[in-house]
Amino acid sequence: MPRSGAEARRRLQQAALELYRERGFDRTTTAEIAARAGVNERTFFRHFPDKREVLFDGEPELRAALMRAVAEAPGDLEPLDVLLFAFRKAGRILEENRPFSEPRLAVIAATPALRERELAKAASLTEAVAEALRRRNVAARPAELAAHAGWAAFHQAAQDWLADDSAQSLDAHLLQTFDELRALSGPRPPAAARAGD
């Protein structure tokens, strides 16, 4: 039996991930997860409200890290640069959890209910980032746009990093992806092109 709450939580997460990979998410019960982790089902529900949340446990920590990093970013940065600063800091959480993150993404990709939950979590985090930018006096519409673009870049960089067999860090992927995002905006097109002529 695990001796601490943190140890029980970690074991439940590991057991769930193993079972989801072996049997699939839909064919795994909370009782089976608890048994594999060496605890009872009541312990499972003390830590997680349902079997989906086992895979999304780090969301509050990531949200807090992003909000804090946006607030701490140097005052002279443009919104996208603020987000790059924040994602680089918060990305350390992902790097520390890489052994869990890689198989977790595979389980989510194979399970429609989990993909739906991931989209809801991403929308919530994007709104939190937009709110953090508004607190820095970025106007509402640009804050929303920057948050959506920044989150998409972060998500792309994280997926590239997890799929990368080289030793390139998440930080390097973030820098590259944000450079590519800036390159996409490029110089403004002539007025005729903007008008649709």
Score class of each variant (00 low, 15 high):
residue 1 M to D: 14
residue 2 P to K: 12
residue 2 P to Y: 15
residue 6 A to G: 12
residue 7 E to R: 13
residue 10 R to Q: 10
residue 12 L to E: 09
residue 15 A to N: 06
residue 15 A to D: 06
residue 17 L to Q: 02
residue 17 L to R: 02
residue 19 L to A: 03
residue 19 L to D: 08
residue 31 A to G: 01
residue 33 I to T: 08
residue 34 A to T: 02
residue 34 A to S: 03
residue 41 E to F: 07
residue 45 F to D: 13
residue 45 F to G: 14
residue 48 F to I: 15
residue 53 E to N: 15
residue 55 L to A: 09
residue 57 D to A: 14
residue 67 M to S: 13
residue 68 R to G: 04
residue 74 P to R: 03
residue 77 L to I: 12
residue 78 E to D: 08
residue 80 L to C: 02
residue 81 D to Y: 02
residue 85 F to G: 03
residue 87 F to K: 00
residue 87 F to G: 03
residue 88 R to A: 05
residue 90 A to P: 07
residue 91 G to Y: 02
residue 93 I to G: 00
residue 96 E to Q: 11
residue 99 P to C: 12
residue 99 P to S: 06
residue 101 S to V: 02
residue 102 E to Q: 12
residue 106 A to I: 06
residue 106 A to Q: 06
residue 107 V to D: 03
residue 113 A to M: 13
residue 114 L to H: 09
residue 115 R to V: 05
residue 118 E to C: 10
residue 118 E to K: 01
residue 121 K to D: 05
residue 124 S to I: 04
residue 126 T to P: 08
residue 128 A to E: 10
residue 129 V to Y: 06
residue 129 V to I: 07
residue 130 A to K: 07
residue 130 A to T: 07
residue 132 A to F: 13
residue 134 R to I: 05
residue 135 R to Y: 03
residue 147 A to W: 04
residue 148 H to A: 07
residue 156 Q to C: 05
residue 156 Q to F: 03
residue 158 A to L: 12
residue 159 Q to R: 11
residue 160 D to P: 09
residue 161 W to L: 11
residue 166 S to L: 14
residue 171 D to I: 11
residue 174 L to R: 02
residue 177 T to L: 07
residue 178 F to M: 07
residue 179 D to H: 15
residue 182 R to N: 06
residue 184 L to A: 13
residue 185 S to K: 14
residue 187 P to L: 15
residue 190 P to L: 04
residue 192 A to P: 00
residue 194 R to N: 02
residue 196 G to N: 06
residue 197 D to R: 01
